[in-house]
Design a binder for these strands. Structure first.
Lengths: 228, 228
DNA sequence: CAATAATTTATAACATGTTATAATCCAAAC
DNA sequence: GTTTGGATTATAACATGTTATAAATTATTG
């Protein structure tokens, strides 16, 4: 005799699990709410009662993935400068474990234009970047008068757009990592002290070389260029 | 007795115009294909014959706006460094003339995730930024070994994500401009020569001050932060 | 144990983008 | 001028996300 709240929680879980199962199976989020309800063993009305919309369900799925990422992130140890690049690579590694699945989650969670998306994805990450910026500044790698909010915003936005490009199938995982690394190095170097620049400048060259090596004629794949 | 092609072109135009009219009137793209067909005086099947999908119609509408922007852009005259910022402000000015309309166009055109979007929006702009980067490099403001493709990619992506944020109603036009200006300065300074840096560093401080002044408690509005 | 009230369920319905089909129209070809 | 064929039209249909409604279920309350 489960409590009412327990039963509700169980149904919630069943729905999320069914969504996960369907997405892993098909590799995309193209399941219908009717199919989801059937897979979860509930009525079509229940997902709406418990989550409100398909969007919200996708966000709940995304949220479970974020928890995993944040946990690994907290165990990351690196230099105040290297940590920026390590955090990016960590995300890439996580995505690489189940690329199709993550693409599907990210793609569909962003769906409506990402207003709620940000609550799960953008905002917590922004705070993380801000913390890293503050540390790098204290370590003397970044200019003292740089604003951590402004800098972190630029970083998280750049990360975000590259993830979006990958989720939309425009670029490969390797290029995702490379693009973010390169742009991070550029942004950080733009606000670096002499000490920071001394480390970032050489790094930047390596990163640029790697990034451009991914492009066929040394031009990035901005896709659909021929369709006009 | 109009030619068959003429009649087709006229219908095309009628549909685009109807779409424009509906979007200007309501300020969003929430019109149905049935409403569009009626407003254009054609059958519901015709827009599908001529464009293929609602997406494609939105892209055609976006395209007309892009033409205007590119025309003004080509008349822009400024220093090899200032031009970056002028081009951003020009877009802002254009959007300011009919903000609701442009938001609606951008929002809905990006709809599916922007695969085709890029053909109209991303790619032509990328080439423009690349040209500016090459000029700035030749003028001695940017490091000689910087790759114009890599740099232009970072710039256009940053511009793009900020426009998206505005289209999604996350930020105001003024913040759109300020964010892009700031990040452009950071990115450019990250690859600047001594001469370039001499001009960008002071500019960066001003831009950072302006950007942070737009935030209430000196924290950017990443929205929905309270909804978890 | 009986009454209550919260949830789920089954079901229908609606709006929407999109596709299919057959009838109709009309410029183009002869 | 008649025929032909490409395009549009009217219409129905489908899948989908979502909402509404009444009936059924079941933990909770007394």
């Amino acid at each position: 005799m489960p409590t009412r709240e327990e039963a509700k929680a169980a149904r919630r879980e069943a729905i999320i699990n069914a969504a996960l199962r369907l997405m892993y199976a098909r590799g995309d989020s193209g399941f219908s709410m009717r199919a989801l309800a059937e897979a979860a063993g509930v009525s079509i009305a229940t997902p709406y009662n418990l989550f409100g919309s398909k969007q919200a369900i996708m966000l709940a799925v995304l949220d479970t993935g974020m928890t995993l990422y944040e946990e690994r992130l907290s165990r990351l140890e690196a230099d105040e400068l290297d940590i920026f690049f390590e955090a990016v690579s960590l995300a890439k590694d996580l995505y690489a474990e189940a690329p199709k699945f993550h693409q599907a989650v990210l793609f569909s969670a962003y769906g409506d234009g990402g207003r709620d998306y940000r609550a799960v994805f953008g905002d917590p990450r922004f705070l993380f970047w801000k913390m890293l910026v503050e540390r790098a500044r204290e370590a003397g790698f970044l200019d003292a008068d740089i604003d951590p909010n402004a800098m972190a915003l630029a970083l998280s936005q750049q990360f975000f757009i590259c993830i979006l490009e990958w989720a939309y199938g425009e670029i490969e995982l390797e290029e995702l990592e490379s693009r973010v690394h390169y742009t991070f190095a550029l942004l950080l170097n733009g606000a670096a002290t002499a000490a920071g620049s001394a480390r970032l400048k050489p790094h930047l060259k390596v990163l640029q070389k790697h990034l451009t090596s991914l492009w066929p004629v040394s031009a990035p794949r901005t896709s659909a260029a021929a369709s006009r």
